[in-house]
Amino acid sequence: MDDEAEHHQLRGPSPTSVAIAWATTSCALASNRSTSFSAERLDSGIPRPSRGLTQATARRITVPQNTMAYGTIKEVTSDIAEREYGIARTIKTTAVTSCMIIVCPVGTKLLGIHLSIFGETDIFGPADADRVQEILRQHGADLSKVHIFGELDFWGGEIAGYDRLMEVLGHPGTHRQHQRSGTLTITAADLT
């Protein structure tokens, strides 16, 4: 029996299992996808993780490199869902459960990118951070005024592309990081 299985059997689920269960269930519920966890389990006392996923969990959920990774980040003109971005005077998102929303001024409008930890078959990686950088450059985003919104406690160095993303964004200080969940509406006033 491995250490985690023994820990689960003797003391209940490990913090790693709790974090992955929370993130998986939250993402699935927000997107109406089926999952092996139920809404009752989510609401029945699973504690919310206080930091990003652990390295052990990230290794366990990584898929083989020959599969399609995170997926595309596509432009939309309506509410921004996971792995989508848009430009408007007001950025509106679908439910934010374990996601991060990057928002930068672009002229008189805002550019918002809705990033999820989990993509189509893999977790957010360095190549995905480079795609974010490409989108920001393509639209002339003002990175000196970048803000991050969302469930930031889920994100950390354990997520493969997190460090690269922070590098791309110029390591925004905590005064430009906003812990929020649910459906977000972000305006220029939120960036001051």
Rank of each mutant, 00 (worst) to 15 (best):
E84N: 06
E84Q: 10
E84D: 07
E84H: 07
Y85D: 02
G86V: 03
G86S: 08
G86Q: 05
I87E: 04
I87Q: 01
I87P: 05
I87G: 06
I87H: 09
I87K: 04
A88Q: 08
R89A: 15
R89G: 15
R89N: 15
R89Q: 11
T90K: 15
T90M: 12
I91V: 10
I91D: 01
I91R: 01
K92I: 08
K92G: 14
K92W: 10
K92S: 14
T93D: 00
T93L: 01
T93M: 01
T93F: 00
T94D: 02
A95F: 10
V96N: 00
V96H: 01
V96P: 02
T97C: 03
T97H: 00
T97P: 03
S98K: 04
C99A: 11
C99N: 08
M100T: 02
M100L: 14
M100Q: 06
I101M: 10
I101A: 04
I101L: 10
I102F: 03
V103Y: 00
C104T: 10
C104V: 12
C104E: 05
P105C: 13
P105W: 07
P105R: 08
P105D: 07
P105M: 07
P105V: 12
P105K: 05
V106A: 03
V106D: 04
G107E: 05
T108A: 11
T108S: 14
K109G: 06
K109D: 11
K109V: 07
L110F: 06
L110D: 01
L111F: 11
L111R: 02
L111S: 05
L111P: 06
G112S: 09
G112L: 03
G112H: 00
I113A: 02
L115A: 01
L115D: 00
S116N: 06
S116D: 05
S116F: 09
S116A: 13
S116V: 06
I117A: 08
I117K: 01
I117S: 05
F118Q: 00
G119T: 05
G119A: 10
G119I: 09
G119S: 11
G119V: 13
E120A: 13
E120F: 12
E120T: 13
E120I: 14
T121C: 15
T121Y: 10
T121L: 14
D122F: 07
D122M: 09
D122Y: 08
D122R: 09
D122E: 10
D122H: 09
I123C: 11
I123L: 15
I123A: 13
I123Q: 11
F124H: 04
F124C: 05
F124I: 11
G125L: 13
G125I: 14
G125W: 11
P126E: 15
P126S: 12
P126F: 10
P126M: 12
A127N: 14
A127V: 15
A127F: 14
A129M: 08
A129F: 01
D130P: 09
D130A: 12
D130M: 14
R131V: 10
R131E: 11
R131F: 12
R131N: 07
R131T: 15
R131C: 08
V132M: 07
V132R: 02
V132N: 00
Q133C: 11
Q133A: 15
Q133H: 13
Q133G: 15
Q133V: 06
E134S: 14
E134K: 12
